[in-house]
Computed example of a mutant assay.
Amino acid sequence: MKFIETPLKGSYIIEIEHISDHRGFFARSWCEKEFRDHGLNPNLVQCNISFNAKKGTLRGMHYQIKPHEEAKLVRCTNGAIYDVIIDIRPQSSTFKQWFGVELTAKNYKMLYIPEGFAHGFETLEDDTEVFYQMSEFYHSECARGVRWNDPSFHIEWLLTENLIISEKDQNYPYF
Rank of each mutant, 00 (worst) to 15 (best):
C76Q: 03
Q91T: 10
P90E: 08
I81F: 04
W148K: 01
P114I: 04
K109E: 05
E129C: 10
D87I: 13
T104I: 15
E136N: 14
E141P: 06
Y108M: 13
V130K: 00
G100V: 10
Y112D: 03
Y108R: 15
Y82I: 03
G100W: 02
V130G: 01
G79R: 02
G79E: 00
Q133W: 15
F137R: 14
M134T: 11
N107P: 03
E136T: 14
E115M: 15
R89T: 10
W98K: 03
T77L: 12
C142F: 09
K109V: 13
I86W: 01
D87P: 02
E125Y: 05
A80V: 07
D126R: 08
E115L: 04
E136G: 09
L124P: 02
T77Q: 07
A105H: 10
V101S: 06
Q133F: 15
N78Q: 15
H119Q: 07
V84H: 01
G100M: 06
L111A: 13
V146F: 05
Y112W: 14
Y132G: 04
G116L: 07
Y82D: 05
I113W: 02
F95L: 10
K106R: 14
F131C: 06
I81R: 01
Q91H: 08
Y112H: 13
K109Q: 09
I85L: 09
S93F: 08
R144F: 07
N107M: 11
T77S: 11
R147E: 10
I113K: 00
A80G: 11
F121I: 04
F137H: 07
G116V: 03
S93I: 15
Y138T: 13
F99E: 11
E125C: 13
F99G: 02
